[in-house]
């Protein structure tokens, strides 16, 4: 792994599996009476959210606290960004306070990538524009593995606004790397062109067709703010075509699970009966989110340590080269001293 978690795109299969396996260990911690371990005592996490968020922010906050970190939350309205400070200055200030991990959410794609190279703290992308939301995809995959016991060869249907969904994007990257077959379902206006040319990805516009035989059905939130863009006529028509109800769910596999990144719009993309039904794992996703984020923070902290150790080793090496004469054989050194004495350097 690298210093930061910017996106699933930057990870390889082994990284993903390592995060999932580590998260299993942390899941055990969350099932205890005392849900806290002293692992990262004295380290600091800053949650920098430039977009409203309750669950992701709370999930990161709990993850940090359960690792015994000091956690502070900065929200846009209370920050000095409104006073004209640049993003880079904001984040450097966080660093001056001693932040080891900075969790950032921003409405523009690529902001975490831009900042990562300019700070030594580890950056975690908690959602950047339409680009990625890597920890959500990781917790989705973790939840799938928990319920299905395997990943490779599964058929996962992702339904809804693919075009504006960073959750979908991160999941498509992750599932591609893990050998999961992805079916994207939604109206043509909400599925970016070229998606079906990706390996292991198929595009469907009719829900019944796409969902049949799926192992997992992942509904995305209808982002009501998109309706103004004219991507679909109105919310009722969308609901009619793409809502996940009992009848549609019966077309998927008998043991298919239902997922949703939340917050859910009951009666729009998911019916109440399905959301509260026994095949819904929506609350498992929330619960697993904390374990997965603990794993990411834990692994990045280790990465940061090894980087610091490497830098320290490098510094020692440099210093050693400067004082190289000490490593010279005694005779040469004495000769050198003699020469200098003759030249009256002493």
């Amino acid at each position: 792994m690298t210093k930061d978690l910017l996106g699933i795109k930057e990870l390889d299969k082994d990284d993903i599996i390592r995060i999932l396996d580590t998260a299993s260990g942390f899941k055990g911690v969350l099932e205890r009476d005392i849900k806290k371990v002293p692992t990262l005592r004295g380290k600091t996490m800053v949650n920098l959210f430039f977009e409203p968020s309750t669950r992701t922010r709370m999930s990161f906050e709990l993850a940090g606290k359960r690792l015994s970190m000091d956690v502070t939350n900065v929200s846009i309205s209370a920050s000095s960004v409104t006073k004209g400070e640049t993003l880079l200055d904001t984040i450097r200030t966080m660093e001056a306070y001693g932040a080891d991990i900075v969790v950032i959410r921003h409405s523009s794609s690529g902001i975490p990538h831009l900042l990562a190279d300019n700070v030594t703290a580890s950056l975690i992308n908690a959602g950047d524009g339409f680009n990625e939301h890597p920890t959500q995809a990781l917790l989705d995959i973790f939840t799938i593995r928990q319920h299905k016991g395997r990943l490779e060869g599964l058929d996962v249907a992702i339904v809804g606004d693919i075009a504006h969904s960073r959750v979908a994007r991160s999941n498509i990257y992750a599932m591609g790397k893990l050998g999961i077959n992805v079916r994207l379902i939604g109206p043509p206006t909400l599925i970016p062109a070229g998606m079906d040319s990706l390996p292991k990805v198929k595009v469907f516009h009719r829900m019944e067709e796409g969902i049949s035989g799926a192992d997992v059905v992942m509904q995305l939130r209808v982002q009501r703010e998109r309706q103004k863009g004219g991507f679909f006529p109105n919310i009722h028509e969308y609901a009619k075509l793409y809502i996940l109800n009992g009848r549609r769910l019966s077309m998927a596999k008998d043991d298919a699970i239902v997922m949703h990144p939340g917050p859910i719009n009951r009666g729009v993309e998911i019916s109440s009966a399905v959301a509260d039904g026994e095949r819904s794992v929506i609350l498992d996703q929330v619960n697993n989110g904390v374990a997965v984020r603990m794993a990411v923070v834990y692994l990045l902290s280790g990465e940061k340590t090894s980087r610091m150790m490497e830098e320290r080793r490098q510094r020692t090496e440099d210093r050693r080269q400067k004082t190289d004469h000490k490593l010279m054989p005694a005779q040469e050194r004495r000769q050198g001293t003699k020469d200098r004495r003759q030249k009256n350097e002493y």
């Binding site: 396996d21 580590t22 299993s24 260990g25 942390f26 055990g28 911690v29 371990v37 002293p38 692992t39 990262l40 380290k43 834990y298 692994l299 902290s301 280790g302 990465e303 340590t305 090894s306 150790m309």
Partner: peptide, 23 residues
């Protein structure tokens, strides 16, 4: 018992150790 998360040298180690099962 896996004591990994309770180690006192976690920030001095190169690689974060793998977490084993505590049961």
């Amino acid at each position: 018992l896996d004591i990994t998360l309770y180690r006192d040298d976690i920030s001095l180690r190169k690689d974060p150790p793998v977490i084993k099962e505590t049961d």
